[in-house]
Write a protein that binds this DNA or RNA. Structure first.
Length: 159
DNA sequence: GCCAACGTTGGC
DNA sequence: GCCAACGTTGGC
């Protein structure tokens, strides 16, 4: 099983929205090739996701989600009326893919970006590297576990 | 609102 | 294939 971090602006779609709707969310509109490759080629059902709120006050990890459906072509790329329409993407040769993401857990304690940056164990996480804008990124298992521990308000494990 | 970082586009 | 211009991301 792999671990990921996926960014969303909570005023567009938050972890509360995901929980409330009670069904998986198609993660459409991603228009970056690196992120596309992760969704199309690497993500599998059951992979665990840190659900990250960006452009928020504060920004940070709000909870955990899970991949519920493997990558398939993003239909919004084919729809000329859609904000994310891309004429380069054709149904017979799709350029853009999405996965479906389901609710797992809303953290008891929101883990702010400042807290992630302050935790020495998380210094090499992609999300705290400067200039890192990728909206879908892999997370090391030990980093995933540490962020979840913080979000549940559990005591640090012994070194 | 600013702006640094970075990805993409398009002229050549 | 280079690279300047442009658009976007996202923290602050």
């Amino acid at each position: 099983m792999r671990y990921w971090l996926m960014k969303t602006e909570p005023n567009e779609f938050s972890i509360d929205d995901l929980e409330r709707q009670g069904h998986p969310e198609p993660w459409d509109g991603v228009r970056n090739y690196t992120a596309r490759n992760f969704m199309r080629d690497k993500m599998r059902v059951g992979d665990q996701v840190l659900f990250y709120h960006s452009n928020a006050e504060p920004s940070g990890v709000a909870g955990v989600a899970e991949i519920k459906k493997r990558g398939y072509p993003d239909p919004t790329a084919f729809d000329s009326a859609d904000k994310h329409f891309d004429p380069k993407s054709k149904p017979e040769a799709p350029a853009w893919y999405l996965v479906e993401v389901g609710f797992v857990e809303r953290f008891a304690r929101f883990v702010s970006l400042a807290e992630v940056k302050a935790n020495r164990k998380l210094r090499s996480m992609a999300v705290v590297q400067r200039g890192q804008r990728l909206s879908v990124q892999p997370v090391a298992p030990r980093h995933f576990a540490e962020v979840v521990r913080m979000g549940r308000g559990e005591a640090p494990a012994d070194e």
